[in-house]
Design a protein around this nucleic acid. Sequence first.
DNA 1: AAATTAATGTGTTGTAAGTACATATTTACT
DNA 2: AGTAAATATGTACTTACAACACATTAATTT
Lengths: 241, 241
Amino acid sequence: MTEKEMRLKTAEIEKISHLDYFNIAISVDCVIFGYEEKELKVLLIKSDLEEFAGLYSLLGDLIRPDEDLETASYRILKDRTGLDDVYLEQVQAFGSIERHPSGRVITIAYYSLIDIKHHKLKLSHNELNWHPVNEIKKMAFDHKLILDSCLGRLQEQVLEHPVIFNLLPEKFSLRELQELYEAILGVELDRRNFRKKISIKDWLVDIDEMENDVPHRPGKLYKLKPEFKKRTLRKKLTQAF
Amino acid sequence: MTEKEMRLKTAEIEKISHLDYFNIAISVDCVIFGYEEKELKVLLIKSDLEEFAGLYSLLGDLIRPDEDLETASYRILKDRTGLDDVYLEQVQAFGSIERHPSGRVITIAYYSLIDIKHHKLKLSHNELNWHPVNEIKKMAFDHKLILDSCLGRLQEQVLEHPVIFNLLPEKFSLRELQELYEAILGVELDRRNFRKKISIKDWLVDIDEMENDVPHRPGKLYKLKPEFKKRTLRKKLTQAF
DNA sequence: AAATTAATGTGTTGTAAGTACATATTTACT
DNA sequence: AGTAAATATGTACTTACAACACATTAATTT
């Protein structure tokens, strides 16, 4: 059997076995967070399954045999947002037997953080849209559970690690940064204490520029120090063993 | 096609597709932690693969089509340790393409905490043994990576949550508890400050008993308050959607 | 041009937690 | 009875956390 024949055979087999519900399929789902108009948002698509008519679902896909988990997530991100230099973090696997109506699908959830303004996605033609996280009540599959779980992880991470900056443009004011923390954590913060805490962490550099399109006194602009720019928190799994 | 025929067909298909390396298999691997002789230990088995001769591996198995992830983990724990009321926590999925020499296997790592003395495992007949975590250098597959990742998660958890008590017998002294923290975190702690911190957390009850088999002045014994006994930290995923 | 408004930018004080450190007490052992 | 080794507890110092007030700057209005 040539390799090509095997691929064809395999494609056929996969189709059958998935249809038959006996094999276990594995997917990744990406919770893509963005920040706009003082709200944390998530990128969702209208579900194309009849069972979930009118509901939204996360962006995901089956993992291909020749790609690892991160590669699959980056493929989805690239396809949907056009971005490939994106912060990405694995959160948890979800594997309830009944979670997918068409069969057994275990999914691995990732969250990613992107700067909405910094990219143009093809929103129009496939009902792909940004939704305020706080307004989402029901979703297709167990995706609300996955979203909540990823939001929880994000809330933990922003307290300790400089990941929040992936949601902001390169240059930002301290007010913008504080509003973003408030949107993610769902709390109000004291401006003076916030600034003190941030300055202790020593993540930022004052770039000696000012805001220019605000209808009030402009604030100073800052950048994240380059040494804190990371695509993920976890160590790279460079070698299998 | 009857259901029985479908099952047979499927079994055949699975065999072929797994052999052909094109399908993706999915497993769980359990990092089973125990505590003995002032050392954090992990339960390992000699690898039966020729590629990994002499190396140890974690306890794991493929997930069956009719069980969810936790069920699979509990099955492994029950099979290997005889215990079924065990603390269990999902950590992370590992899915490098080359991580398993026989084909594509994505695994989901769990760690669990058990009281070594409280259970009898069938250690003798299958090279299943407790190994001090600090002495483990190389393992089969990517299991060292998985072990490190689970240890890291455990270290994070014990700082915030009352999970460490799953490694201890029902009754314990503050010295035993401190030694266990030191073993997990790999640091020395000040006895006086440790006791103050623990008492603030208000996790323990003084049961008005003393140690009795120590070669020195016996200390008071404590129990974890019942409201903190949990089998896992994460919320139960009771419903799929 | 002057007054107003609304945001920026910084400092103080009280409280709680974290760290370093010392002494008295109890039990087992010799 | 005396010694050794561990338990048990307390104090001073430092650092983080929380609540809070005032002067400054620039855009806007009068």
